[in-house]
Design a protein around this nucleic acid. Structure first.
Lengths: 226, 226
DNA sequence: TTGTTAATTAACAATTCGGTAAAACACCAT
DNA sequence: ATGGTGTTTTACCGAATTGTTAATTAACAA
């Protein structure tokens, strides 16, 4: 269980705050990325896949709320923890923020100890799923971070969709994922694809695994089971 | 596909706040339990297994921090979402709170909309893992999550309709489900099928269970009984 | 007992669903 | 353009599931 560093992305237009937070977070061993506005933030997010994103609400070019909305629309950031930075007063923004899918907010002025304990709390929930991102089931190993799958220690090539699908199924072995579940979480909320698309991908995965580990539950969906 | 209600436990010594929050949460369809101090809170938690616990920090008898600590020591509450209620000022408490394993805190004064959106955010993560799951009656185990039925620890194959039917009957052992009930809940409100359809499925289930556990109530319907 | 009604059973028919192969499409790098 | 890779669609097949029918059996009241 090699615990790779926790990655945090800070997005704020005020250099002072950015520097202040970066300093405090790095001191704690986090890997920190920064961006000065929403647009940059999204670029950084795509590039570095942080575990936690801290967004200032008031920013030029693209504000935190819009940034959050856009991030949440990309499926790879569906489950990333996002928190806002707000001035104490702006309750209005807070609400808008939560509706947009943020997990929390942090109020300015920021006190280091509070910031850190808050972040620790936020990351607690991530722990299981993302940080030790390698899942290992039987002779199968799936590493979300490097997008790699190996079986019996030979690396298999899994393109994006197949990887996401396998990754989803293995995230809770035994649980049945309905076709709808799968569509929503691998393809996206309102993407429409043909009936046979999922089957085809399942087939390819089965082919590569050479296994019976993915089971069909007729009328419902699929599950991964040893 | 009945999703059981989300259960929230409120622990606060001020009746006003308790009532206020209870009102707002119930209005949203949550199932709410309340307690006036930490000790009661723990009792309620054990009794009702809430998905989310909201603890006031300042309380007589046993304060929120101690309550949280004790809850976290019980393994059944390791993954329950716990959040504190704090007065805006008490920063010290906030930190202590997080160290004790709380997931978040909510500041007083409480505004309904903020409360609700915050709770929604907190519960987002719970959804998959906790609500619902397996029923066990005698030597029979029915798991809605994995769509599997086992008797004496051997897994039986139940196609969808049979599974839904068995699942319905076992959801309330002893209760008689009328044929109409069954049609509505397994087949759907306005699906029309022949008179004998249910019987045939019942027969198949009985065959697989090799049991007398499903009883016929002539002229009415069926019930599951040990 | 007898007659009536309801439920069980078995055989069969219909339908739905998922698997498969092949082709079409989209995107990217060369 | 060209070829390669990854993704989606199409069309067809087979099989599991689901529904129907009709004969048989059980339950119960007259």
């Amino acid at each position: 269980m090699q615990t790779s560093a926790v990655k945090i992305l800070l997005v704020d237009d005020e250099p002072d705050i950015l520097e202040f937070m970066e300093y405090n977070l790095k001191k704690e061993g986090y890997q920190v990325f920064t961006a000065n506005n929403g647009r940059e933030g999204i670029q950084q997010a795509i590039k570095n896949h942080p575990h936690l994103i801290i967004l200032d609400i008031m920013m030029p070019v693209m504000d935190g709320i819009e940034t959050c909305r856009q991030l949440r629309e990309m499926k790879e950031f569906k489950s990333t923890v996002i928190t806002f930075l707000t001035a104490r007063s702006e309750d209005y923004s807070q609400i808008a923020g939560f509706d947009v899918g943020a997990d929390d907010y942090i109020s300015k002025p920021i006190k280091p100890r509070i910031l850190l304990s808050r972040i620790k709390a936020l990351l607690r929930r991530v722990n299981d799923s993302q940080i030790d991102s390698a899942i290992r089931i039987g002779d199968l190993e799936i590493d979300r971070e490097s997008y790699s799958v190996s079986k019996d220690s030979t690396v298999l090539n899994f393109p994006r969709k197949e990887f996401e699908l396998l990754s989803l199924l293995t995230s809770k072995p035994g649980k049945v994922f309905t076709r709808e579940d799968i569509l929503n979480r691998v393809w996206g909320e309102d993407i429409v694809v043909g009936d046979r698309t999922i089957d085809v991908h399942i087939r390819k995965i089965r082919e590569k695994l050479g296994d019976e580990t993915i089971k069909t539950i007729k009328g419902i969906g699929y599950k991964f089971d040893i």
